[in-house]
Amino acid sequence: MSDLRPRGLPARLPVLWPAAMLLLFFVVPFGIMLAVSFSHQVEGGFYEPGFELANYARFLDPFFGRALLFSFWISVLAAAIVIAVAFPFTYCLTRLRRRAQVPFLVFVLAVLSLSEVIIGFAWSTLLSRTAGLSNLLVWIGLIPRAQAWTPSFGALLMGLCYLGFPYTVLILYPALSRLDPEIPEASRTLGASPLRTFFLVIVPVLRAPLLGALIMVFVFNLGAYLLPQVLGRPQHWTLSVHITDQAVFQSNLPFAAAMAIFLVLFSLAFIGLTMVLGGQREAAR
């Protein structure tokens, strides 16, 4: 057996390029952030190099613990709602003829082209008391007087779902398009109603892309920075907002860095757990 692996610089180039990118734009900044998170914050000034765990110890403060838990809770909830809405939507979409799919895809892409700022302020207007949808309900006669629905937890959830929906559709679309239409049909001929076919065959067959979409929307939500401030109350601020608040307005970079690192580790743990659970079910079959 001879070693046929390519040698020399040209052969290694395909690895070097992404490795260099990763090093330059991820490993180095992350290292700096890590170093900063252990630095000493000078009261009323800038930080100075050092090694102390004081910044991490502040997590024991229930205020930030609650912010972290809230960030996770709303990110998971919004991701679950988006998947529950977008998966049937995409499934029905892929069952249409190619030509009929185009307007829907254009619509989804159009939503994608809106910035978070526009979406945030549009929803805050739509849910407001003066110009919002509640006036429509008053006009129909369902409620006696106009109400302000924002800022609130529901408004924030709504905004996050709206933002995540087009991404989810675009992630699920290729996998669902490739699904052999005869697979659900086989389930039908074997006596399963369309609804049972959906849950017994379509969902489990597409478990991997579903899991992928769930993780992506979750991470996406976790990074939401603008929407919690536009559509939520201060108690609805996610960790991302607190990080910005500490870094920009309180000038406490070490604590902001510690929170950011904590957020990264927490999300990685969550993603790992999801993948392990998903993989285990596969192995059990």
């Binding site: 049909e185 086989a186 389930s187 006596g191 065959v201």
Partner: peptide, 18 residues
């Protein structure tokens, strides 16, 4: 289809991969 009680073999076989 699900109430006809007929057996069908599909061109792609359509076996459930999961």
């Amino acid at each position: 289809a699900h109430r006809r009680g007929l057996g069908m073999v599909f061109q792609s076989l359509a076996l459930f991969p999961h």
